[in-house]
Design a protein around this nucleic acid. Structure first.
Lengths: 146, 146
DNA sequence: TTAATCCCGACTAAAATACTGGGGATTCAA
DNA sequence: TTGAATCCCCAGTATTTTAGTCGGGATTAA
């Protein structure tokens, strides 16, 4: 049940970007340096975030990435799903109750009740935290000099 | 963020066992057949469940496995953790706030707030469902002939 | 025109997952 | 007392996924 480095690095990178967003485009190179992630790997992560329309890119010299929407309107769930795909612990948990194909030939799969509950609770957790909050938190800490 | 087959098959197997528990020891072979899991793979899963003292084994002919405690007292969390290890989405989420080594050299890791929240919500979900409930659900359905 | 950027696809190494197989130990029952 | 039905344990292996690397191209500000 581990989150991959896509999600882990990607969220860190996104927060980093959001913190500096107001100062204009933030380059991959600068994020990579601060967050100690390789540039080429980070490129792939940013591409996913762009495809999901969470960031916009600015090409050419002095370019970089900016948020596509205010940080207050982007949830952690948006970011993680863009990076990881569905966060469902098991495929069928994300599907509609009726359309779900039954797991094994026989009978309705009882454990699906469990997968559904886990799925819902994960989504509720990530969709209730917004990047804006994390940015605030992050700025608070850098003032304290941590 | 996917659960591995250990957790998926293992929970199914556990529920299967719990449903038949009252009729005496349930053999791996019979669970494997009903749940369409290979015998040797299932052996490994049962070994984990035994180590976690969730089931007891009865060796020899007519042997098999029985629950170590009533199904009402075993949570889905107990079973999944026995099979999968920690369900934390990221290592540090499970650690104590203070003892946690900081993720990268600099500063306190803000995204840890997120990992912690996800971790808590997963655990709350799995620890609030008991195998007993799933057994009841399962019996209900087989009566209805599903 | 050049340097700083993003962009893209292909490749690869390492790790994790999902098994398979063989032989041994126990115990019931004929 | 023997044999079949069990659990038990460990080692091997194929496949898939992850986590990256690499090389070259397109765009744009200065």
């Amino acid at each position: 049940m581990k989150l991959s480095t896509k999600g882990r690095y990607g969220l860190r990178a996104f927060i980093d970007l959001a913190v500096s967003d107001e100062k204009g485009p933030v380059s991959i190179a600068s994020i990579a340096e601060r967050q100690e992630i390789s540039v080429s790997y980070l490129e792939q992560l940013m591409a996913k975030l762009k495809r999901a329309e969470l960031v916009q890119s600015v090409r050419g010299a002095n370019g970089g990435y900016i948020l596509a929407r205010p940080a207050e309107e982007i949830s952690v769930g948006d970011v993680l799903r863009a990076l990881e795909g569905s966060l469902a612990p098991v495929e069928c948990a994300a599907l509609d109750q009726n359309k779900a194909t039954h797991c094994n030939g026989s009978s309705h799969c009882v454990s699906r009740i469990v997968w559904k509950r886990i799925n819902d609770s994960i989504n509720e957790a990530v969709d209730s935290i917004y990047i804006g909050e994390l940015v605030k938190e992050s700025k608070k800490e850098s003032i304290r000099g941590e």
